[in-house]
Write a protein that binds this DNA or RNA. Structure first.
Lengths: 228, 228
DNA sequence: CGGCGGCTTGATCGGTCTCAAGTACGGTGG
DNA sequence: CCACCGTACTTGAGACCGATCAAGCCGCCG
C-alpha cells in the first residue's frame, strides 16, 4: 500500500529507468533548472499527482496535454487549467499540491525536484525572481479564468476557443486534446451546454467543426466581439 | 489634465503632506519594507489606483476596507477581492495594475514604493522569498474565489459570510464594511439574489440580521455544511 | 416631514441544467 | 469485410435557478 501510493504518483518503472534520460539545455523559462530534469511518461487519464500530496516535483510538459482539477463537495469536477507543451505545472509556493493533475492523452514531462529549485533560489536571486514571475503569470491566468465564469455560455466557449487557438494553433484550425467533459468542467458548464453552444457557433458561421475535436476559426472577430 | 490623472491616483495634498508620516516598525509580513512606508487616506468610493496604471506603489491597509475590481465588457463589475486591515494589495509582478482599487469606507493605507521593494529583493533573497510567498497566497485566494463561482447562490453567500467571519469577527457577530452590491459583484450574483439568499438563511436560523450590515452567525455548522 | 439611497420583496422571464434519446466513430471479433 | 459494441458527442423537452423588471420598505439626513 505504501508501494501503491508511490506508484500512483510516480508510476512503476519510471522513476528509475527514466531518471537517466537527461534533457537538452532549455530554451524558455527556468533556464538552468531544466538541465537537472528527467523525463517521465504518462498514459491517458493517468494521475500525475494528487491534491494534498507533498509538492516534491515540478513538471514541464514536453508532449501532450495535462489538466489540473479539484473534485467539489457535490461530486462535480472543476478543472483549474490545461497545460500544453512548454507549460510548467505543479510548482507550489506551499508544501502541498493544491490541485490534482492528470494526463489528458499520452504525455511526456520533464520533472525537476522542487527542493532543488527552491534551494537554488535561496542563493540565486535571478532564480528567485523567476519563481515569483512564474507564480505571477499563473495568478494572472487564474484571474482571467475567474472572469470567464461570470459570463454567458456563449462567451465562455468563445473565449475558450480563442485561448486554445492562441496556444496551440499553427493555422486557423486547431485539434483539441481534451474532451467536451473537460471543456465543460473548465468553463463551469455542462457537457450538453458546451455541445449546444458549439453547434450554435457553427450555425453562426463563427467556427467550423469538421470533427468533434477539430475546430476551424472562421470568424475569430465575431468570437472576440462576444467578449470585448 | 495631467494634474487630474495624478490627483486621481494620489489625491491632492496626500503625497506630500503625508509622506512625512513614518510608520512604526512592522509586526507581520514584509518586515523591513514597512519601515519605509508613508500613510495615505482615502474617502469612501475614492479610487486608489486604476487598472492598467503603472504599479508604482504597494499598499497595506491599516484601517477600513478596499475592493479591487474590473469593469466587464457588458458594464457589469467583477470584484476581485476585499482587503481588510493587515492585508496587502496592489503588489504586481508585472508593470501594471491588473485591477482597479477603491476605498469602500474611510481607509488608511501604508504606501511603499514598488521599485524599492523589488530592488531590495534583488539583493536580499529573504525579501525575494517573501514576494513569492505573497503572490502564492494571493494565487490560492483567487483559486478559492474561482471555486465559489461555480456553486449555487446559497453556497456562495454562505462561503462569503464564513470567510468574512474568519477575517473580521471578534465575536460571532460581524459588521460588514461593504454594500450588497459589492457582495453581489464579488459573488457573481445580483443584489436581489444576495438579499433573498440572506433572508432565506435567516429563516433557516443559520444567521441573524439585526441590521443589513450586521450579521450574526447562529449556526455556522449549517453554513459550512452547504459547501463541505 | 420629505426625500434619497440602500435594501427587501414580488412577479415574470430566460438561460442553463437535467433527463432522455439518438447519432457518429473507433475498436474488436467473427 | 462487416456486425457489434462502447464511448463520446449531439439533440430534444421540460424543470429550475437566478436575472430582470417593478414596487415597496427602512433608515438617515436635510
Amino acid at each position: 500500500m505504501l508501494m501503491q501510493t508511490q506508484l500512483r504518483t510516480f508510476p512503476a518503472s519510471q522513476l528509475h529507468t527514466n531518471a537517466i534520460t537527461r534533457s537538452a539545455p532549455a530554451r524558455g523559462g527556468f533556464g538552468t533548472m531544466e538541465a537537472m530534469g528527467s523525463q517521465m511518461r504518462f498514459d491517458p487519464n493517468e494521475e500525475i499527482f494528487g491534491e494534498g500530496e507533498p509538492a516534491e516535483y515540478v513538471y514541464k510538459v514536453t508532449k501532450g496535454a495535462v489538466r489540473t482539477y479539484k473534485i467539489l463537495c457535490d461530486g462535480r469536477r472543476q478543472i483549474g487549467g490545461f497545460y500544453l507543451p512548454g507549460d510548467i505545472f505543479g510548482l507550489e509556493v506551499g508544501k502541498e499540491h493544491q490541485f490534482s493533475a492528470e494526463a489528458i492523452n499520452d504525455v511526456t514531462v520533464l520533472v525537476m525536484k522542487h527542493s532543488l529549485i527552491v534551494s537554488l533560489a535561496e542563493r540565486d536571486c535571478d532564480t528567485a525572481r523567476e519563481l515569483w514571475s512564474f507564480t505571477g503569470r499563473e495568478l494572472n491566468r487564474v484571474q482571467e479564468h475567474l472572469l470567464l465564469l461570470v459570463k454567458t455560455a456563449q462567451q465562455r466557449v468563445a473565449s475558450f476557443l480563442l485561448e486554445m487557438s492562441a496556444r496551440l494553433a499553427t493555422t486557423d484550425a486547431i485539434e483539441l486534446p481534451m474532451s467536451r467533459q473537460d471543456i465543460a468542467d473548465y468553463l463551469g458548464l455542462t457537457i450538453e451546454t458546451v455541445s449546444r453552444t458549439m453547434t450554435q457557433l457553427v450555425s453562426e458561421q463563427a467556427i467550423g467543426l469538421p470533427s468533434s475535436r477539430r475546430i476551424v476559426l472562421r470568424n475569430s472577430g465575431a468570437l472576440r466581439q462576444l467578449n470585448a
